[in-house]
Amino acid sequence: MLAKRIQPMASQARRLYVELMFQVMGRALQAVSEVDSEVQAEAKALPKGFLFEMMVMPDGSKLIVEHVGEGRFHYHGDSAPRPVDVSIRFKHLAHAFLVLSFQEKTSVAFANDRMLVDGDVSYAVRMTRVLNRLESFILPKIIAKRAVKEYPENLQLPEKLISAAQIYLKVATHFVQSARA
């Protein structure tokens, strides 16, 4: 308990930021799977009802999405309806913060042992590609380049602007909806 009280503000802020980013990413994953054919193509190879989790060890923030079929994701917030199929676990809040604040690429974080994969690796690989695609969609190009190994060539500016707008809009409506609920 004492340790909790003397935690610096910075740590509290990081915790909040990670939690918020998980929420944004969860909603964006759902939104992007409704508009982007490439994400849909990746997701279609996942079994229907497949549950994917990203979390901070030991028991921190969580992001859970389900593949509901046809390449569409459904965002479940931070609680899973049943045991998850693939879990990507950050070893520490600090590592999640590095990745989610785009200071460390997802692929580099894997290479640096910042996180563990539990479950079928081939699905984890697929989900990493989906996350990369998502990041290049929702982030300004300059930040996205830092976040993903390679910025996709086929993401033309107009397409990006339109899609990003669509996604932001959807994220916003999801926020409003859950705020009401």
């Binding site: 190879a45 692929s107 894997f110 290479a111 690796v121 081939s122 690989v125 990493t128 990369n132 390679e150």
Partner: peptide, 13 residues
């Protein structure tokens, strides 16, 4: 090959 775990560590996407 695209689903293989080692592809994550290839330096180029």
């Amino acid at each position: 090959a695209l689903d293989d775990g080692s592809i994550m560590f290839n330096p180029k996407e």
